[in-house]
Amino acid sequence: MTQTTRMSEDLNPEAPRALAEPKSVTVRSRQLKILSYIVLSIFAVFYIWPLYMLINTSLKSFTDYLRDPAGVATEPSLANFTEAWELANFPQYMTNSAIYTASATIIFVLTSLFVAFPIARGYFRGSGAILTMYVVALFLPPALIPQFQLILNLGLYNTRIGFILLFLINPIGMIILVNYIKSIPKELDESAAVDGASYITFVTRIIFPLIRPAVATVTVLHAIGIWNELILPTIYLTNEDYFPITRGLIVFEGVYGSNWPGIAAAVLMLMLPILILFMFLQRYIIGGLTAGAVKG
């Protein structure tokens, strides 16, 4: 039991309480725990195995791979990594993805904050209508085709700005923000107004800190969406220097399509920085994803 209580868990406010439980419960809970571990491990296998498979494949030569795709690499070599590194401009792709994700997310969050707040409060005539408009947007048809014509006519085809423009909205994000703001007591507005606070000061200084969990959730959801987008870069970006990772990788796969060891090496090289970044930021990412999503 002492081991359990020493868990360095961030999401575990009730840990010490376990000590106070009666013995029969403890025995049962131990059985339950073993069962839990079994189930979790079965799941884990399907998350670890593909990773192992990727590493193993990346260490093989193409001929070895063709002879025995799944066998353990007998003469592991890093040749695939150097080759893949030379063939594709992965650092550029990573930089592009980071730029798109960061700038589109920042702009989206800033602009939607000032839409969400007055709508949630009903400060406008037709606030309800605007909110409905966003709810409808959840279900709107994928507007690939007119969007393409729009970007083309704005002269923003195959430009970074044009590409980012496509990611400046997110109806789900807006709805999460509105719902969260609704849970903040309106008396706050009244007292602030009485104190003579201006609208902007109030929204940025008081509301923003209060709805930070929701903002975090929306930020993460939105950023993941951009980071993973595959189709829009296919349509809008033709210059390789603008490719995000997703597009760069699928082009790499198309061009070196048969060479699985090379592709595996490329995938691993792209994964590594993402994973390291994720390890550092995971408290914020996972925390952010959840904090705002469960309230309201």
């Binding site: 702009i107 700005i161 980012i164 603008y242």
Partner: peptide
């Protein structure tokens, strides 16, 4: 800030 984000977007790479 918005302009800055756009500028970063436009020429960062």
């Amino acid at each position: 800030l918005v302009v800055f984000a756009l500028v970063v977007a436009a020429c960062g790479g």
